Simulated assay, not measured.
Amino acid sequence: MLRQPFFKYSFFALLIVDLTFTAGLIISGMSDISLSTLLATTIWFISFYWLPVWAAAYIIFNIRARGIENAFIEWIITVIMLSLGLLITEKLLQLSFNDSFSLGNFLLLGGLTWGTPIYFIARFIESRGKISQEKQARKQAQLQTLRYQLNPHFMFNSLNTISAYIHSNPDLADEVLHELADILRYSLDTGEDNSVSLQQEIAIIDKYLNIEKARFGDRLIVNFDIPAELLNIQVPPLILQPIVENAIKHNAQQIELAITIKVEKVINRKDEILRISISDNGSGFSEAVLTKGYGKGIGMKNLQLRMQQLPQGKVILTNGTTPNRKGATVLVEMAL
């Protein structure tokens, strides 16, 4: 129960309130800097702020654990605990200081005055935290859904590739099936992971390219431009494969298809950005695809949606800008 984040954060918050109140008394001349002031401050913190608030929270969390959550009941518990804390504080101050005064009827009013804002501020912070957790949970659920959509899509396309030569070259087909099994195993193993190292992603791209090279042979050329120091950077799983697959799928008729995968780290407004570009020498994107950001397939559409969930994540599609520079480029960016 005491592992609840409330107990850790409330301790420091209440300590700051207590010290601030004491500092205000000293500045206003109502108290001085002395051991007596330190003792009084300690008594107020322990017996009025800290222990009553923790006791109220402990009772409230136990009640909630039994399925009862009622704001009015919780508020009453908080006010009662603060009133009891005020009573104990009064007695301790009277034992410690001869000139300490009695709080009298202010005990209940004091508990009400302090307990009400403490409870409702804590309730507000708790509700904001729940909203944040729900948003994060929805985001993770959406990412998982996109991943699960990608798996059967990728398998279907890969099996089509294998079927092209499974009868004419069984040994090669067996090798390719092993590569496909490794990719699918990777997909399953990273199903619950938010990120993997770039090195793992490149290793899977190599396996996917081995499948495609069995079909295209020397017609498919892939170049990597990746600094060694960036290989340990974390990226979302299976983020490169749909881009490479898209480049191969839409340029399968090329006499020679060259793909370049480049990774770099750049500074954008003092933020570190990981930039991945995958370029080809194919026919480029149509105007409709450039405008929309993806075509009719599911791979690039899912990539766009996945990147939208990441800090500063985005996907930019461009074509060659000069007659001598044909092909398409997919630029992926995300915050490090």
Rank of each mutant, 00 (worst) to 15 (best):
N169S: 15
N210I: 03
F101Q: 07
I166L: 08
E126N: 10
E74N: 14
E256T: 15
G85D: 10
M1L: 12
K8W: 11
R325M: 12
S197R: 01
E245V: 03
A164P: 03
L198A: 06
F6C: 00
K265F: 05
I211R: 02
E287A: 03
A57V: 01
S31K: 14
E264Y: 05
A228V: 15
L35I: 14
R128S: 07
L87S: 11
K8Y: 14
I276W: 05
S102N: 05
F11L: 09
K314P: 01
I131A: 06
F120I: 00
H153L: 02
L331D: 14
I33C: 07
F72K: 05
E264L: 09
L184M: 08
L38I: 14
L95W: 06
I73G: 14
Y186R: 00
V266K: 04
L317K: 06
N157W: 06
L177A: 12
I298W: 03
I267H: 09
K301P: 10
L103Q: 05
V222E: 06
T22H: 05
G115A: 06
T145C: 04
Y49G: 01
F12P: 08
D218A: 15
G297I: 12
A55Q: 00
V53N: 09
Q309G: 10
A56W: 05
R325N: 15
M155G: 02
S158V: 14
D174A: 09
N232C: 03
K130W: 04
R128F: 04
F224I: 04
A328C: 08
L336Y: 03
